[in-house]
Computed example of a mutant assay.
Amino acid sequence: MQVAVPASAIEVSDLTKRYGDVLAVDHLTLRVQPGEIYALLGLNGAGKTTTIRMLLGMVRPSSGSVSVLAEQVRPEQSSVWSRVGYLVETPAAYPELTVRENLEIVRRLRGLTDPWVVDDVLAQLGLVPYADRRARTLSLGNSQRLGLAKALIHRPDLLILDEPANGLDPAGVAEVRDLLHDLAHRHGVAILLSSHILTEVARLSTRIGIIHHGRMVEEIAAADLTAHTRPRLTVVTRNAAGAMAALRAAGHFAELDGHGKLVLTDERALHHADEVATLLVNADCPPTRLAVEQDDLETYFLQLVGAIPAAGDG
């Protein structure tokens, strides 16, 4: 018996958006499955928000195709949006209405007949203490919570979120992380979010697409991120050339990093740094500094997009 493969929640193929001479999104291709949390990661201006706007039909692509919940995104399309929740850039609200009144308007616009959905989403986003406050009095973090509540009120099958943790304090970030994790893994909601914070993305997402200047630089499973933060043994000595010759003669792969440091990445050097030190002393090139270092995730991300040089680059 053949098992049916579920349709992708998002299918993007060769997506391009050009504004005059500016190429905002450059032949982007990606796929998001039900129950998956896919993060678009990139520096500010990388093309994340433009991509999200094309996914939601807010901006027409210059070329390429976008489908959401197995339907092609077109300007005249309307049926699929009842199953999609979204938050793009700054959350909008009626400033003179209360939090509850704002959500009540969304409930009616969504055609939801159960009035209790407002209370449910207030509790879900921790907004019960602020339910009767006017939206204009909310902090940035609680405004973000209200925007997320509006995106979730109709229990969508797909969530598209642009910087969902914006303005939240650490406790709020953790609450939203737990909420999104629960929606994806317990309820099968597909989630695409954008962020420029790798550490938070690594905790939350299933897969990460790293984009730079509108182009996909790398796509990676979040579980594999730590494998890309390679450890290395760095050595500082007054005679770098002599030290390199001695290390290579002993079978170590050593290179200069452009700052006068020798960098070794072979397993033997990493696990037996004391032997490396002894070797250099015997070669009359004693190290003045010797340490095992490892990039953190943000360093890895910045190296990928060229914001800082990779270890070993001159």
Rank of each mutant, 00 (worst) to 15 (best):
V276S: 06
V235W: 06
H196I: 12
F301T: 08
G42Q: 09
E267S: 10
T51G: 10
P309D: 12
E275Y: 00
R155L: 02
Q294D: 04
A240I: 14
P95R: 09
V5A: 11
G258Q: 07
H272M: 05
E200F: 10
R207C: 08
F301S: 03
S63W: 08
L247H: 05
D14L: 01
W81Q: 03
L262E: 01
G260S: 12
H212L: 12
G209V: 12
I37F: 05
H228Y: 14
P61V: 08
T137P: 04
Y19H: 10
A250N: 03
R110F: 04
I211L: 15
A273T: 14
H185F: 06
T229F: 05
D295T: 09
K261V: 13
L270R: 11
T29E: 00
R18M: 11
G258F: 08
R268L: 08
S139F: 09
L262F: 09
G314C: 04
A39T: 04
Y130E: 06
R134D: 02
S65E: 15
G126I: 11
Y38H: 13
M216R: 09
L304N: 01
L140W: 06
G57T: 01
T265D: 09
E293W: 11
G314I: 09
T98G: 00
G42H: 06
I37W: 00
A70F: 03
W81M: 10
S139L: 11
G111H: 12
T16V: 15
M54H: 07
E96H: 15
I197E: 06
R289L: 07
L280F: 13
A4T: 14
Q2P: 14
Q124A: 13
V59C: 04
Q72S: 14
T49L: 07
M58K: 00
G167N: 05
A171E: 14
H259Q: 15
H213Y: 09
T49E: 08
I210F: 06
D169I: 07
T226D: 15
E293S: 11
G35D: 00
A221L: 10
E200I: 12
S78L: 13
A241W: 02
A202S: 14
N102S: 03
M216G: 07
I105R: 03
R100W: 09
P287D: 04
E293T: 15
I308Y: 08
K261E: 14
L193M: 14
G85C: 12
Y94T: 10
A250T: 08
K17N: 04
D178F: 00
Q294N: 06
L297A: 01
L15F: 06
H213C: 03
V276M: 09
R232M: 08
A254N: 01
A246H: 00
S195V: 10
L225H: 02
T237S: 12
M54P: 07
L103A: 00
N102H: 03
S78E: 15
R53W: 01
L56Y: 02
G312V: 06
R133N: 06
V80I: 15
L247G: 02
D266G: 01
L152T: 12
L28P: 03
S82F: 00
I153Y: 03
A223P: 02
A310Q: 10
L125N: 00
G188D: 12
H271Y: 05
A245T: 15
H272V: 06
P95K: 11
E219W: 02
Y86S: 15
K48F: 07
L161A: 05
G47Y: 13
R186V: 06
V117Q: 09
G42K: 05
A223E: 15
I220H: 04
G312R: 01
